[in-house]
Design a protein around this nucleic acid. Structure first.
Lengths: 287, 287
DNA sequence: TAGATTGTTAATCGATTAACAATC
DNA sequence: TAGATTGTTAATCGATTAACAATC
């Protein structure tokens, strides 16, 4: 199965848009070697290297950015992608960097620079084709694959995650939700049934799971992490409030409510301090 | 009520630690003007300005960092604070930057530089007093106040947040959980009863709420945000997958599961690409 | 004192941004 | 062509880090 055929399908989204040949953005990757199909053919070709390079094997569509994309850029691509989907749903066919940047909450120079790391997918004087850019950003992020994810911990948070719609959408699917509590095992959450955490290794192996989500209490997180890593998981999203120790080559991202709240508190305090001079915040002391 | 008296209490945590005069870290801020109580008196004085400055008003303890703390540092302070609490619970009285940095998952130079923005709270040749540093970091973050928080949205996520223990702990308390669904109103979540979202303005006003958490569906988030802002909330933690528009002076932080997953997917893809050359990841295509 | 560790310096690195030549 | 907008340059800004003087 080609990657292109796994482009997250948006054809289920009702739209009444007037635009060219949308149905087959996905097919573009397949027959891009056929060349100059549309206005964009030049841009696609250029993505492989310098203008004028011929890219005879048609690999530009397969490997658009051999050089590394800066971390800060990677972190913003999902935001752009979301904004692009919103535009597409509104029937917008083409968008200028200024508009897209506004929708994403960044400035346009940053947006253009970020997108330039993926390749030259815009048209000077015109803007970016929304669907085409959706496809290119999706592909850069690895979302033309469908990543199976295992969620460990079926407490409040794990249940929230399993029921979270955005999870099942483009690029990810829940392979399993596991819990150590037998009372939890067997319950239906979203589309899956909670399994016992003892199945962790089997689920990872049989499901080809590369991404694990830790939604356990803090005390259990490191042990679960160790087991995920031993089983072959190399990407971990950690909701437990602990710093996980992982070997080289394993990627951990952390989502931490209390840290976010504390950062907000810092700024709130600073604002109060500015308003009241040296006196502490009314907002908090009143309560 | 003085700020110092609102230092988040840790006396409920069972500990068997051998250390000096712990009971009254909180009181330190009150009588710090009394001066040289301990080895640290010198450091405290210096925090106000250059070594040798006299700081006759004793304001150093009230305003330790007149200059701005870098954003990157602010974001790490909560991580240090957590590591410090863990050390304190283990009965550790003093910690070197190398150890604390390891516990927090950063390098020691960064840790020392970060802490230096708060003041000079270490002792050369010795390290940092754990309890004292807990207090100083807490104060820098504004956690010596107790911030009332309103959570809007009592769906899966809102319920998870309301039940989240870390929420109620040091520095924050849930003033209300609100939902637009009458079927939800009246249910008990953690320590509070779900109210109707119509009460939002009243709750914010009467509770002196400065921090709002948006845990609604994407479609409702901007409207809720607007109402929170109108009501006077200037710090917002947004779990809805939308870019919120807020006026100048309102601080929004975003927690977004699908963005984190997408960033993980990017790195996972890159690792597969490195392993297999140009071929796409097995992990995902197998499944 | 001698050993240890902080707080700070300065060099390096990466990210942001305005401005504009390229070009649609 | 003229107007518009991209992609890129270069300057600026902020963050990281190793190294070490200060000093406990």
């Amino acid at each position: 199965m080609s990657n292109a055929a796994e482009l997250p399908s948006r054809h289920d989204v009702p739209r009444g848009r007037a635009r060219h040949d949308v149905a087959d953005e996905a097919s573009r990757a397949r027959d891009v070697a056929a060349g100059a199909r549309m206005i964009r053919a030049g841009a696609v070709r250029r993505a492989a290297g310098r203008p004028g390079d011929e890219d005879p094997a048609g690999q530009s569509a397969e490997r658009p950015c051999p050089a590394g994309i800066p971390e800060a850029t990677v972190a913003r691509l999902p935001v752009y992608l979301r904004a692009l989907y919103t535009l597409a749903d509104r029937g917008v066919g083409t968008v200028a960097s200024e508009e897209l940047a506004a929708a994403a909450g960044v400035n346009s120079a940053k947006l253009r620079k970020d997108l330039s790391y993926l390749g030259s997918y815009g048209i000077r004087g015109v803007g970016y084709d929304v669907d085409y850019l959706v496809y290119q950003v999706s592909r850069a992020l690895g979302l033309t694959q469908n990543w199976p994810v295992v969620i460990v911990g079926a407490g409040n948070l794990g249940r929230a995650l399993a029921n979270y719609g955005g999870f099942v959408t483009r690029g990810f699917r829940i392979a399993a939700v596991l819990d150590s509590d037998q009372a939890m095992v067997g319950r239906e959450l979203g589309l899956v049934v909670v399994g016992h955490v003892g199945e962790l290794e089997a689920v990872v192996a049989s499901g080809g799971v590369a991404i694990g989500v830790i939604a356990t209490p803090a005390g259990a997180a490191q042990a679960v992490c160790d087991r995920l890593v031993s089983a072959g998981v190399t990407s971990i999203l950690n909701f437990a409030p602990v710093v996980l120790n992982v070997p080289e080559g394993v990627d951990v991202r952390k989502v931490d409510l209390s840290i976010e709240l504390q950062i907000l508190a810092f700024h709130a305090q600073r604002r109060s301090a500015e308003r009241f001079g040296q006196v502490a915040s009314q907002a908090a002391t009143e309560a």
